[in-house]
């Protein structure tokens, strides 16, 4: 369809290449999610003057393996009065939608498998698994569909905390979807395209062409809404321990709970990549630093920011969350869109 994009000029993308890419995303992001838990505990520990996990392996590095073994071997409990089918499907929805969203964003650079490897040698593996030309909307839509994971989980488990968690899921995700959409609308108007590749090219003019300088308000709004959509502190009301035990995940154990966790971390990475591509110049080269290193650095920065914020801010109350969304962020987002429109017209 669209041939003017960067992907169009590159070697032909074959079905095998896309399949390899999908397996790569699944394997690496799942592993990163596991490693992310270790990083999170360490970073939080250092910010709070503790040591964090130290006992399993050097500096607690093998803690990931220990956690993994625990998750896989833990007894799988389905509560007596729960709706067993939906109870089992819900974690899969979270993990699946998170990974489907990742299929439309650029993850890792594109490369060609060396010729000396049998069977697959010479296959071109693209940077974006499926380059739909409405990439941004697709990612946002898929993350919106992700709300069914916590929602159905909470409703299926015959537990009051679960129901409260599910209700909070619905209001929080629905409300903050509006902010995400409106905040990202202003850069979309500037670029005039929904393709992430076009966004990357629009910011290829170096440090000063990053959209964060033209759209600082949209950037901050997007970050705040991103925290809410990925269920991170200070907006993690879905499973706020002090109020609703563990919310939608109260009755879950073992690998089913693990899938919620992997989904959450995959969503964190997706939001980080979106923020990097839309506002911080994407995977363009930066001076002598190659583009793929730059995007890794940016994603790492956003990931660290999420941990930093978790260490720095307390939870908010549900009514404060709604107040922030509808009375503060949404008017600002609308004004930002209108001002951007006027500036483009003039």
């Amino acid at each position: 369809m669209e041939t003017t994009t960067l992907i169009g000029q590159l070697p032909e993308v074959t079905a095998v290449g896309v399949a390899i890419k999908a397996i790569l995303i699944l394997a690496i992001i799942s592993a990163v999610a596991g490693f992310g838990t270790y990083l999170e505990r360490k970073v939080l520990a250092f910010m709070q003057r503790r040591l964090g996990p130290m006992h399993v392996g050097p500096y607690g590095l093998l803690q990931i393996a220990a956690d993994g073994i625990k998750l896989f071997t833990k007894e799988d409990i389905v509560p007596q009065h729960a709706n067993a089918v939906i109870f089992k499907v819900a974690p899969v929805i979270t993990a699946a939608t998170a990974f489907i969203a990742l299929s439309a964003v650029p993850v890792f650079p594109d490369f060609r498998i060396p010729e000396f490897i049998p069977v697959l040698g010479g296959t071109f593996v693209p940077s974006i698994a499926s380059d739909v030309n409405v990439g941004i909307l697709f990612v946002l839509g898929m993350m919106a569909a992700g709300l069914y994971g916590p929602l159905l989980a909470g409703m299926a488990q015959a537990n009051k905390w679960g129901i409260i968690g599910a209700a909070r899921t619905a209001i929080q995700f629905l409300s903050y979807e509006v902010i995400t959409g409106l905040s990202i609308l202003a850069p979309i108007m500037l670029v005039g395209s929904l393709s992430l590749v076009d966004f990357n090219e629009a910011q290829s003019g170096g440090f000063t062409s990053w959209f964060v300088w033209q759209q600082p308000v949209a950037f901050i709004l997007f970050l705040i809404a991103g925290f809410a959509e990925t269920n991170r502190t200070p907006f993690d009301l879905l499973e706020h321990e002090a109020e609703v035990i563990s919310g939608y995940a109260t009755e879950y154990s073992g690998m089913r709970w693990g899938m919620f966790f992997i989904g959450e971390y995959a969503n964190m990475i997706t939001i980080s990549i979106l923020a990097a591509v839309v506002f911080l110049g994407g995977y363009n080269d930066f001076g002598f630093i190659a583009g793929w290193i730059m995007i890794l650095l940016k994603v790492a920065f956003f990931f660290f920011l999420m941990l930093w914020v978790r260490a720095a801010w307390p939870h908010v109350r549900p009514d404060q969350l709604m107040w922030l969304c509808w009375k503060v962020l949404m008017p600002i987002a609308v004004i930002n869109v209108v001002v951007t429109g006027i500036v483009i017209m003039v």
Binding site: L137, L140, G141, M142, A144, A145, L174
Partner: peptide
């Protein structure tokens, strides 16, 4: 995508 966002999401 609009079908996804409007019907599924909202």
């Amino acid at each position: 995508v609009v079908q996804l966002i409007v019907y599924v999401g909202a």
